[in-house]
């Protein structure tokens, strides 16, 4: 019965329509029951429920080449700056200039990649409108905007021999910021809702820095003289091992629903190749690092492995963003527990 009364005075007890109850659906009448009895169940029980299997998230709009490339180049640059500064101190002269140049070149390219990936490249400078502690990209941009001039200055001074004092400061600044440059991108991708990235947040920096170190070691191996090879070989072996281990630990710690993204064909292929090349590079560095050719092979392998890691992780993220189960599964499990 409608609670409204209309007396000669007027209408009382009105209630807004939004308070209406939901509908009751299609009832099942005897005929329906009869008809459906014995008819096969039309929908198999679903393991998890989703909206037509559509992703919950909107997958990143980033291009693999630009963004994975930027992660790789940033890592290479940051670690190379550290290598350059240390090598300068410890006297591996043959490494210094190439490392500085690599850092400068890589950071320049990485910035270019970043800008290229912007939807509105002409607005790149808007990155410096604000300094947002909550945004790894903002923090990273500000770090990069200090780091890049330093790295470029260090390389410039190194190559030209000009302004040595500035060069030294620049080298120091670049080395000090290098680890930040190499690691902040790990925070950048972890700081998303993409399960394969976010849930890997504890290990991601380790993967990124070891991958960065690998790449820097690779650069060093390519460039160094025989006499300077030992530290780079050690760095290469250590970082390659770390990269493999960190990446494996990362995958294994993930919820299976999330980890499966790393086993999608594309990321799986890239990461397997990365692991193989890392292991190969480390082995060659160990066994044949005293030869120039061996170093070249090892260095190339490590640089490639580092890049492949980033692309692998990138694509794993894309796959997991597209997979509703990766988002819903762990959340459901969390709620259930």
């Amino acid at each position: 019965m409608n609670q409204t009364r209309i007396t000669t005075e007027g209408l009382t007890n009105a209630r807004p329509g939004r308070e209406a109850p939901p509908g009751s659906g299609r009832p099942t009448g005897s005929a329906d029951r009869e008809r459906r009895r014995g008819s096969r169940r039309r929908r198999p029980a679903e393991a998890f429920r989703s909206y037509y299997g559509l992703p919950v998230l909107n997958p990143p709009v980033w291009e693999a080449r630009e963004i994975a490339g930027y992660f790789f180049l940033g890592g290479l640059a940051g670690a190379s700056s550290v290598v350059a500064a240390i090598a300068q101190r410890t006297g591996q002269r043959s490494v210094v200039a190439p490392a500085k140049v690599a850092a400068a070149g890589a950071v320049t390219l990485s910035l270019a990649a970043l800008v290229k990936d912007l939807g509105r490249p002409t607005r790149a400078l808007n990155m410096l409108r604000v300094l947002k502690p909550t945004s790894p990209m903002s923090v990273g941009t500000w770090v990069l905007s200090c780091y890049a001039p330093a790295a470029i200055g260090a390389a410039g001074s190194e190559l030209t021999g000009l302004l040595p004092a500035v060069g030294a400061t620049a080298t120091g600044v670049a080395a000090a910021l290098g680890p930040a440059v190499a690691s902040y991108t790990a925070v950048l991708i972890s700081d998303t809702a993409v399960p394969a990235w976010h849930d890997a947040r504890r290990e991601m920096p380790a993967v990124f820095v070891s991958s960065a170190a690998s790449a820097a070691a690779g650069v060093g191996l390519l460039a160094c003289r025989d006499s300077d090879a030992i530290p780079l070989r050690r760095l290469a072996i250590g970082s390659a091992a770390a990269e493999i281990v960190a990446e494996q630990v990362m995958e294994r710690r993930l919820d299976p629903a999330v980890a499966k993204a790393y086993h999608e064909p594309k990321p799986e292929k890239l990461l397997r190749a990365s692991r193989t090349l890392s292991a190969f590079g480390a082995a060659v560095a160990l066994l044949a690092g005293h030869h120039r050719v061996g170093r070249r092979v090892a260095g190339t392998a490590l640089i490639a492995a580092s890049a492949l890691t980033r692309f692998g992780i990138f694509h794993a993220g894309m796959a997991s963003a597209r997979d509703p189960e990766a988002t819903i599964g762990p959340q459901r499990a969390r709620l259930a527990s």
Binding site: V56, W62, R120, R123, M127, T327
Partner: peptide, 13 residues
């Protein structure tokens, strides 16, 4: 203001 860096896209849960 937006320059299309795309970061917000995967950030949104």
């Amino acid at each position: 203001v937006c320059n299309g860096c795309g970061y917000c896209v995967p950030a949104c849960p």
